[in-house]
Nucleic acid binder design. Structure first.
Lengths: 202, 202
DNA sequence: ACCGCGCCATACCGACCGGTATTGAGCGCC
DNA sequence: GGCGCTCAATACCGGTCGGTATGGCGCGGT
């Protein structure tokens, strides 16, 4: 058979992420993760030394997916203001509609309360997200496409609001309805600043 | 001895809350909860049928403490705008500085992912909190002390931001510094609307 | 004096789970 | 063919924890 083997750890991490994001981290044991990838626990422990390593690998998988998705959602737009709006819309959608996202991130946050490694991992992701929005907003403002008096304040509030929205959506299912999703996007954008209307030459 | 006994369940719940809020719900077992109240597990199970009942009792204790604290923080002010500002300041402070608050609520939110009873309990608390801020803001606006075009939007964003701030503070210790705490309060208030200056007769 | 009952302690069960020890199958290499 | 490496499967250990069974102790009622 001679499996190339280099992809196996990723396969295992993917199986772990799939289970974690539906049944939670504590709700899944190592036997089930192994079974999800078609192997047994003995093999799983050959690739990862502990459950925590599996969790951190699943985190990295999540971060990679996020990078790809938000890049795909924004890069289709030419104008920077549109990119910013698309990035916010993508984030809101994933907060409100993506149950896997909510389950996984909530568990990771809870785990960060006690585990410094997991906390460091998530801190890195938060930093990356913040840099993304800061950079995009600054560029949109610099290009004269968006008006925002205090970009740092705006992005800070945006980040907090999005985390809060994701959390509260668990308790307010009606906030996940399409019309409320759009309203949430508008509210978040109005919190950021306002678009500069395109100058249409006559 | 003949202990009055009526206070015992609350004592047990208080011991449970103290442990939950420092070491998490999953990190505390029934023996430790009982020991924290000076009894053994047998007694604990005489008062509560399951660990979940203990958890829900600890939740109710938390809600009661919140009611008392936020009432105490606001009622010292005469003007409604001041009350609103004090309520926001209290919430921010408890989000940023109160580790027990963060640990307990994060665990409850994570538990709500899978347990409908816990979720219902926390939903009730969120509703209560929202009603509190909606009512206070509406009254402040009605009394002409505060200007806010869309109270529903403002309170929605406020609730989301506060939950997000509490969560993100775990990963950004510097946001808990006093100067950043005040800045956060100002940002949240600016998100709500603006105070109407007191009319000082000359 | 006796009983019932509220309250508590002791001892224990059974299930679960992370992690390990051990063995073996396939494969490249000499 | 024999050796050694990689990777996988089986069985098992040690410990934890929620929950239960059972018995005891003191008090109030009669």
């Amino acid at each position: 058979m001679a499996t190339i083997s280099s992809a196996k750890p990723d396969e295992l991490a993917a199986a772990a992420f799939a289970l974690f994001s539906t049944r939670g981290i504590a709700g899944v044991n190592m036997d089930e993760i192994a079974a999800g990838a078609g192997v047994t626990k003995g093999s799983l422990y050959w690739h990862y030394a502990s459950k925590k390593e599996v969790i951190l690998a699943a985190c990295n998988l999540y971060y990679s997916a996020w990078r790809i998705q938000i890049a795909g959602a924004t890069e289709v737009h030419e104008r920077l203001a549109d990119q910013l709006e698309a990035a916010v819309a993508f984030s809101v959608r994933s907060c409100l509609l993506d149950d896997a996202n909510r389950v996984f991130t909530t568990e990771i946050v809870a785990m960060s309360l006690y585990d410094a490694d997991v906390r460091a991992s998530w801190t890195g992701f938060l930093d990356e997200t913040e840099r993304f929005f800061l950079g995009l907003t600054h560029r949109a403002v610099g290009a004269g496409e968006f008006r925002c008096d205090d970009v740092d304040r705006a992005v800070d509030l945006l980040m907090a609001s999005m985390e809060g929205i994701k959390q509260i959506a668990l308790f307010r299912p009606q906030s996940c309805l399409p019309e409320n999703e759009q309203r949430t996007c508008r509210r978040l954008m109005s919190l950021m600043g306002e678009r500069v209307p395109v100058h249409v030459p006559v």
